[in-house]
């Protein structure tokens, strides 16, 4: 009410929320939406039959076109452009939290194997295994050293300056 202290029922064009959108704007926006629909369909079909190759870009391109279309609908059909900022804020908050939802879930599902270098065996068994491995290596060490690292046949591969 603090912000609504002006007198009532002014349906003047200038006020937010009561903006009458010109028919020309509505029709132009509709035209743009149809054009973008055709564009995304054509791109999708071309991608499918191999005329163009967007590859990994096909998802961002399709989503980008859809985003532009959704923005057009929100701005003009839903009149967000002429509306109070609170409504736009609410709308964008929903998008932000959708992105948060996806990104944080993806942090799990997309990175399941990241640090999974450790085997499932307990640490004490692993240490024991490593100890065995070390002992075995040490036992094999003389045999390794007896073998020359570069065999005679390999010398042809090494270019000398």
């Amino acid at each position: 009410m603090a912000e609504n202290a002006h007198t009532s029922s002014g349906h003047d064009d200038g006020h937010h929320g009561h903006h009458i959108i010109p028919l020309g704007v509505l029709l132009k926006v509709f035209g743009a939406l149809i054009f973008l629909t055709i564009l995304t369909v054509v791109l999708g079909l071309w991608e499918r039959d191999g005329t163009i190759h967007l590859g990994a870009l096909s998802v961002p391109v399709a989503l980008g076109i859809a985003g532009v279309k959704a923005t057009l609908v929100a701005m003009f059909f839903m009149a967000l452009k002429y509306d109070t900022r609170v409504n736009a804020l609410a709308f964008s908050l929903s998008i932000v939290f959708l992105v948060v939802f996806f990104v944080f879930t993806f942090l799990d599902t997309g990175f399941r194997d990241t640090f999974n270098e450790w085997p499932d065996t307990p640490i004490d068994e692993r240490e024991l295994q490593e100890l065995r491995l070390q002992e075995r290596n040490e036992a094999l060490q003389p045999a390794f050293e007896a073998q020359p690292l570069v065999l005679p046949g390999d010398t042809a591969l090494i270019r000398t300056p």
Partner: peptide
């Protein structure tokens, strides 16, 4: 922060 309920669920260490 919801993932802190799932530390032992098998979610990725990164998350």
């Amino acid at each position: 922060v919801w993932g802190h309920h799932m530390f032992v669920s098998g979610q990725s260490p990164l998350s």
